[in-house]
């Protein structure tokens, strides 16, 4: 009744690599979706604090970033060790903020201007003095939507 198949040759067939591109593409898409292009090389160290009441910033093009932190080791000679402000790629001063905001505004369509958010990425050990100065500059420039960048805190309940 049963009809036994003939035994194949002893050599094992090569593993098919046809699905490899698909796997790699999947990985590729994953990284493309979950990542943003690096916008600026930081000359200062910024470790954001943790918080629980977080809001996600959705539209990247409507966000400008202001960094406040301590200069990194290689830059400490020229920048000192006091907290500094970085706008985009450059170390800057509070006085440079209005211009920076205008430059960003110019890239955004007129009707989306009210939705522009400033993300303040501030090192957790920085004191409020410099943060307040930046806040005042933002208020004077009428940029009132601000997001204090923070990491998610694991709540222990």
């Amino acid at each position: 009744m049963a009809h036994f198949q003939k035994k194949r040759g002893k050599t094992t067939p090569a593993i098919s690599t046809a699905s490899l591109p698909d796997i790699i593409f999947m990985l590729l898409f994953f990284f493309m979706v979950t990542t943003v292009l690096r916008t600026a090389t930081l000359k200062i160290q910024v470790i954001t604090p943790t918080a629980t009441e977080l809001t996600k910033l959705v539209k990247k093009s409507l966000v400008n970033y202001i960094y406040i932190g301590y200069p990194l080791k290689p830059y400490q000679k020229e920048l000192g060790t006091k907290p500094r402000i970085q706008l985009g790629d450059k170390i800057a001063d509070v006085r440079d903020i209005p211009l920076f905001l205008e430059q960003h505004k110019a890239k955004v369509p007129e009707k989306l201007h009210p939705r522009i958010t400033t993300s303040l990425r501030v090192h957790k050990d920085v004191t409020m003095g410099i943060v307040y100065d930046v806040k005042t500059a933002l208020r004077k420039a009428n940029q009132l939507k601000v997001n204090y960048s923070a990491k998610k805190k694991a709540e222990n309940q």
Binding site: P21, I24, F25, L27, L28, F31, M32, T34, T35, V36, L37, R38, T48, A51, E53, L54, T55, K56, L57, K60, V63, T117, S119, L120, K135, T136, L138, R139, K140, N142, L144, K145, V146, N147, Y148, S149, A150, K151, K152
Partner: peptide
């Protein structure tokens, strides 16, 4: 080819962590 692209994206990107406490400042 896919590997090349993958490595490019791996190198040039950082994982997004754009979250924070949203605040509305009072006008000046």
């Amino acid at each position: 080819i896919a590997f090349l692209l993958l490595i490019f994206f791996l190198v040039t990107t950082t994982i997004a962590e754009d979250k924070g406490v949203l605040v509305k400042l009072p006008p000046w």
